[in-house]
């Protein structure tokens, strides 16, 4: 092996590597850099001892501290629940009116309701409770089963046609499918229903539909189409139509009937959360 070659200008030894006549100097690493590297090595050894580090055939080295991010998360959640406990307990005990009268409790209920709504309700009712075709808008003033705090709470708790013991159920007959009305009659009664909110398109059909409505529909939907919350029968006289207010959509409902299902949340969500949800929905603008 040749003797170490020294660079004339800097006096440094070269590494012996050469590329197209360019040689690499064997400069020492900067001291600060070396110090940091040694510090990192020490750090990592200490880390291996204290924290989980090495994968084993089954499992891994646990470390002296026995740290686990899963346990940390669980502790954080428990701590957050503890922190919320004072308010959560008061919400659980207080009745709705008390909660609404207390700004602090109200704030807590609204915040909790909002996050629970996003997790559990937004899938059907929309992220801002704006609903969609077949899924009621919860921020308007039209309620199928009632818009008071208690009614909203009951709907969330027991659901609609949900199979819960306390659930509320109703069913509109499928007038066409079950041959209760002729096709022509369905067109006529649909026109009459539309006329209740001034949307009818055929005056003759409206006149012919009136007696059919009086015979078949008035028990649930009311004389003026005002609806009946006891049966969840929607108002036919207002501007809000869950399945659309064009003649075709209305005829389709009379023919085949429609019934939405809302799951019950009792047993799935804590009662406190249901209370918070009711307060949140009630405060969206349409609460009664």
């Amino acid at each position: 092996m040749a003797a170490t070659e020294r660079d004339e200008i800097s006096g440094q030894a070269t590494t012996g590597h050469e590329w197209d006549g360019i040689k690499e100097l064997d400069n020492p690493l900067p001291r600060w850099w070396l110090m940091i590297m040694y510090a990192c090595i020490v750090w990592s050894v200490v880390y291996w001892v204290l924290y989980p580090a090495w994968p084993l055939v089954s499992g891994y080295t646990k470390g002296v501290f026995g740290y686990s991010s899963r346990a940390e998360l669980a502790a954080d959640i428990a701590a957050a629940n503890d922190a919320r406990k004072i308010f959560a307990d008061r919400i659980a005990e207080a009745d709705m009116a008390t909660i609404q009268a207390d700004p602090k409790l109200m704030e807590f209920a609204l915040a909790g309701g909002k996050s629970a709504f996003g997790d559990n309700c937004a899938g059907c009712h929309g992220s801002a409770a704006q609903g969609g075709k077949g899924y009621p808008n919860l921020s308007d003033d039209d309620w199928l089963w009632g818009g008071s705090l208690e009614a909203i709470q009951a709907t969330i708790k027991y659901g609609i046609r949900s199979g819960h013991d306390e659930t509320r159920e109703s069913e509109m007959p499928a007038f066409g499918r079950d041959d209760l009305l002729e096709k022509e009659q369905i067109t006529q009664v649909a026109q009459y229903a539309l006329s209740l909110s001034g949307k009818a398109t055929d005056a003759v059909a409206v006149n012919r539909g009136a007696p059919i409505y009086a015979e078949q529909c008035v028990d649930c939907h009311g004389k003026k189409g005002e609806g009946n919350r006891e049966f969840g029968a929607p108002s036919l006289a207002d501007a809000i139509w869950l399945f659309g207010n064009d003649p075709k959509s209305v005829e389709a409902i009379v023919t085949n009937s429609r019934k939405g299902v809302m799951p019950h949340w009792q047993g799935r969500l804590p009662d406190t959360t249901i209370k918070q949800l009711a307060i949140f929905i009630h405060a969206l603008g349409g609460g009664e």
Partner: peptide
């Protein structure tokens, strides 16, 4: 409020938040 942009009320009027 942009979501919803507006809410139609039962009497046909409109509400904004």
């Amino acid at each position: 409020d942009r979501n919803p942009l507006y809410v139609t009320l039962s009497d046909g009027s409109v509400r904004n938040g």
